[in-house]
Simulated assay, not measured.
Amino acid sequence: METKMVVEKADLTAFEGDSGGYYIWSNAKTPLLSELKLAAGKLLLHPLGFALPHYADSNKIGFVLEGTFTS
């Protein structure tokens, strides 16, 4: 099986608002996700943006690519 590993932009917008947006890679455009039974999304928060806590019935891994946190 040959695997195509290319970085592509997310192709679906789940939500977009003043505080940021949530973008999704669809299984139709990224078949490797289907094969591996994975999903991929990107949460983009603007300065002072806030994401509400939520429940999910699956495990998630998050990475902070840039920015700061103050408490």
Score class of each variant (00 low, 15 high):
46 H>L: 10
20 G>D: 02
62 G>S: 15
42 K>W: 15
38 L>C: 09
55 Y>P: 10
21 G>P: 01
6 V>R: 14
14 A>S: 09
44 L>F: 13
15 F>D: 07
11 D>H: 07
3 T>K: 15
30 T>A: 02
24 I>F: 02
35 E>R: 11
59 N>I: 04
12 L>C: 08
32 L>E: 05
37 K>C: 01
31 P>A: 03
58 S>R: 12
41 G>I: 01
2 E>C: 06
33 L>R: 00
54 H>F: 13
1 M>Y: 02
10 A>F: 12
24 I>A: 01
21 G>Y: 00
30 T>P: 00
17 G>R: 01
23 Y>E: 07
62 G>K: 07
49 G>H: 05
37 K>Y: 05
50 F>A: 07
53 P>M: 08
34 S>D: 13
39 A>D: 08
69 F>W: 11
15 F>I: 06
48 L>H: 14
45 L>I: 00
55 Y>D: 10
16 E>C: 07
29 K>V: 06
2 E>S: 11
59 N>E: 13
44 L>S: 11
3 T>D: 07
27 N>D: 15
70 T>M: 08
36 L>Q: 06
14 A>V: 13
42 K>G: 03
7 V>T: 06
11 D>G: 03
33 L>G: 00
71 S>G: 09
40 A>E: 01
46 H>N: 15
36 L>F: 02
46 H>R: 07
11 D>S: 05
43 L>S: 08
20 G>V: 00
48 L>R: 11
34 S>F: 09
54 H>W: 09
25 W>Y: 05
35 E>D: 11
39 A>M: 03
68 T>F: 09
2 E>P: 08
64 V>A: 12
61 I>H: 13
6 V>Y: 04
19 S>T: 08
57 D>R: 10
39 A>H: 04
11 D>A: 03
63 F>V: 11
2 E>R: 07
59 N>C: 05
8 E>A: 07
48 L>M: 12
70 T>D: 13
66 E>I: 02
26 S>Q: 01
14 A>F: 13
3 T>Q: 15
6 V>P: 00
9 K>V: 06
59 N>Y: 08
17 G>H: 06
10 A>N: 08
47 P>S: 06
56 A>W: 06
50 F>G: 02
55 Y>F: 14
69 F>K: 04
48 L>A: 09
9 K>W: 01
58 S>N: 08
27 N>Q: 15
43 L>N: 05
55 Y>L: 15
48 L>D: 11
16 E>F: 06
39 A>E: 10
16 E>Q: 15
28 A>S: 12
14 A>H: 10
61 I>Y: 12
55 Y>M: 13
31 P>H: 02
19 S>N: 10
51 A>D: 11
24 I>C: 00
68 T>R: 06
57 D>V: 11
12 L>D: 06
61 I>R: 09
40 A>R: 04
43 L>G: 05
6 V>L: 10
53 P>L: 05
23 Y>V: 06
17 G>F: 02
11 D>N: 14
52 L>Q: 14
43 L>T: 09
55 Y>R: 13
40 A>N: 01
15 F>W: 14
9 K>S: 09
5 M>L: 14
11 D>E: 02
53 P>K: 05
23 Y>R: 09
16 E>M: 07
52 L>P: 02
8 E>S: 09
67 G>H: 12
67 G>K: 04
39 A>L: 04
